[in-house]
Write a protein that binds this DNA or RNA. Structure first.
Lengths: 213, 213, 213, 213
DNA sequence: CATGAATGAGTATTCATTCAT
DNA sequence: CATGAATGAATACTCATTCAT
């Protein structure tokens, strides 16, 4: 699978002081923007290459070519950096899936699910290690409302699309569809597979079978 | 899903001094056996109740009612404890699946896959948090040959069973079957589902669809 | 006890570059004066409301509505701000005591001491927290000559007044008079007392007793 | 004034885990006892010689000839060390004052107050800097119940003794007696005085005057 | 063998201060 | 002059591991 490292284009909008996870302040000047992005980039790199255990704030700052003090100008804690990466990943995923769904407006269930799975696998395949780590991290992180909102939107989008096509129990079906796709993709990545289309085909077969198509 | 905490009856067979993950020495006497098991028990408890971040060797020793020195008599490092837990979990899983497969000797593909999925979901459901954490841990741990061997056995067992019933590409199919089951089970656990049979039914539907049954 | 927050009208007279405690430069323009005063105000507020541990230069600047850079235009260091506050407090105190002493030109010892104690307690009571913190700070601060001069003036003023009325050992007596007043006032503030006149009465009784009146 | 550095014989009795100020665990072995005492000794030294700003945990450990890890075996935080020193000082003070009071069982008010003042000044004079710093620190520290209890005992002891001798408003009088003594002693220490008897005489004069003797 | 005291490298985070824009 | 981004030494505290008793 091809790799493209990170989703670093998050644009924090408000300066929320009390929240330990919200970004600390909005970078206004160009230099500040660069620092902000560099920190996220560096964190993503370290996570994918060395794993969560190796993610220390000093290491992030060093890799970002930035002082530890600068890092803390923009992120109130290490967890805030992780939360930001996760948020960015979810935002991208939602955008991809929304685009795919929009492009399938009038299509039947077969075509729709295939398109969604294709988008999903492609997305996961870009940075499978990062995705896996961030999903692990999500379980320990104090929930970020923005992230929760995006995830809810994703679930609803999927469930609505299935409901439109007359799938019974669309909520559970949406969950299982996502779970099947994720399961097959992760395991394939772990096994070192690189042929995306093959992975997609198998996920599609499982989902279509699950839906009785 | 019901919970049953731990798989603590691992009995390491050889004393391998250089290996940082292999158990340090075989406890032969009763008291030693008890200490050994208590450490694993304690580690499993802490992992499920407080998460990986809370797992410290001192805490394990305290919870096990053992001195930190004694802990290090039996395990050369914290990672060795985790590796031991993982090994135990895999051993159990292999045993369960082997039993299920043996009981299905002459059965057709439908019945076989259902039995296997049932065993697998049941297994995961016993201690889903522990399983999840240990699987995360596995990615960072230096591979333990014993664990690798068990996993290979599991894959081969599954692949062989599928091959026997004429499934094409049995190795990939085995991987996907496991991935689908794991994906649906994990996501169900995360969503807080407790109706095991419902989860099993959905996994079976997906797998049967995948296999074209 | 009533509270009035700060003594912020210090007007530094000379530009002494090498001294780490002397104000950095004389603000001549109106805006500069305002900035200078705002910084002192902000520092006093933070000290009284949140204590010395919360006094950071960035926080001072923020509260003063001034950039951190501007703060350092006028004060060479955080200690300089504290020294300036202390100086201001001592100046006020000297002014109050001088006024009281002047008003008592021909009075006898009883009346004089009572007037001085009254002025002193009143002064302390305006901002007891700030006074206490600044006195703590004084012990750690490299001595500021201006402040030292004011304190010497105070001591001399008191000693002279006592000497004029025939008190033997006027220097020691002056020191003790101040110590008694400060001791009783501080302890009263700490105990949460609010009746200034009661505090004054007790200090007067002790001092008069001490002086054999 | 003579100096004798520290009150290091505190003997923590119970292991109270949640309290951020209570000692962390009771040192059982001789080596542990030594470490515990060395930390307190070192902290007292640094406080008196370099002031509170210089009191860092690493510095304490270094001066104590102990690793930073050992320090944290016995004290859960830096504040706990300060609280322990304060507690020790209060314990000593209470013991001294109790002894003095007991020795004055049937004495009249003049003799009693003189004895108490003598004890108090002597106590303060042993380590006046340490006493001052610890009293400052007390204001910021989360209150330790043990310390509060001792201080209450001290106040009550004094008030009762005064009440016994017919002093009106014995509680306020006790507070003022202590305040006067402390005020004169501190200021004398600050002025560099070394003649304890002279200090005592002046405090006695003020207190006797205050009490109308 | 068991104990638990001791170790110290490593971690997240703060804050006084500088300097390019 | 004003701004605020950047700096990095310093701080409190943790935890895997060792070793004397």
């Amino acid at each position: 699978m091809m790799r493209r490292i990170a989703q670093v284009s998050n644009s924090p909008s408000m300066s929320r002081r009390a929240d330990p996870i919200a970004p600390r302040k909005t970078p206004r000047q160009a230099r500040a923007q660069a620092t902000y992005a560099a920190v996220l980039q560096a964190a993503a790199h370290i996570l994918t290459e060395q794993g969560r255990g190796a993610l220390t704030t000093n290491r992030i700052a060093e890799r970002a070519g930035v002082s530890i003090g600068s890092l803390y100008q923009y992120f109130p804690s290490k967890e805030a950096i992780l939360a930001d990466l996760l948020r960015g990943m979810r935002r991208e995923m939602l955008a991809d899936i929304e685009a795919a769904a929009a492009a399938c407006g009038g299509l039947n269930l077969r075509a729709l699910t295939e398109a969604l799975i294709r988008a999903s696998v492609r997305h996961h395949a870009q940075a499978p290690d990062l995705a896996r780590v961030l999903e692990q991290v999500e379980l320990e992180l104090p929930g970020d409302p923005e992230t929760a909102r995006i995830e809810a939107q994703l679930r609803d989008l999927l469930a609505a699309a299935l409901a439109d096509r007359g799938v019974p129990g669309p909520t559970v079906a949406a969950q299982d569809l996502a779970a099947i796709t994720k399961g097959i993709t992760d395991e394939a990545a772990r096994a070192g597979e690189t042929d995306l289309d093959f992975v997609i085909a198998r996920a599609v077969r499982a989902v279509h079978g699950y839906l009785g198509l």
